[in-house]
Amino acid sequence: MAAQLGRRGAVISALLTSAFGPAVTAPAGAAASRTAALGSPGVAVGAIMPVRAGQAIGPRASEVIAERTMHALVEVLERDLGATGVPGGVAGIEALRARIRQQVADDFTVGRIVKVDGWRLSLTEARLCALIACAGEDCRLGIN
């Protein structure tokens, strides 16, 4: 299971890493251990962490989404975004970006909307925020 989670987490993490550019300093302590669980040590979390939206919204978003573990979260994001089929490099970045936007639009169209402090957010963006928050110090999800 851990290996599976690591592979899937690495897919998303690597894509985000590619999208965001060079990594920044990796977190320490608890965040570092979660990074390891995601399977892309240091680099992935360092890349994800600068997404301040996720840092701000993620902890609250974690409370309203159904997934209670990072494993479940990664799995559902990977499924919905088709992340495993995304190519690498610049083309992959654009493809992932387009898929996220489309998925967010689809969420609003069909009513997959969650309420976070009164904000009406798409389920996908709430999940992404929750994932990003879990790379930082305020993760409210379990690992497995």
Binding site: A19, F20, G21, V51, R52, A53, R97, I100, W119, L121
Partner: peptide, 15 residues
């Protein structure tokens, strides 16, 4: 890095 992250998550970042 920040601006590229914003491009992914779009308008949420204004918050």
């Amino acid at each position: 890095l920040g601006s590229r992250a914003a491009a992914i998550l779009g308008d949420v970042d204004v918050l």
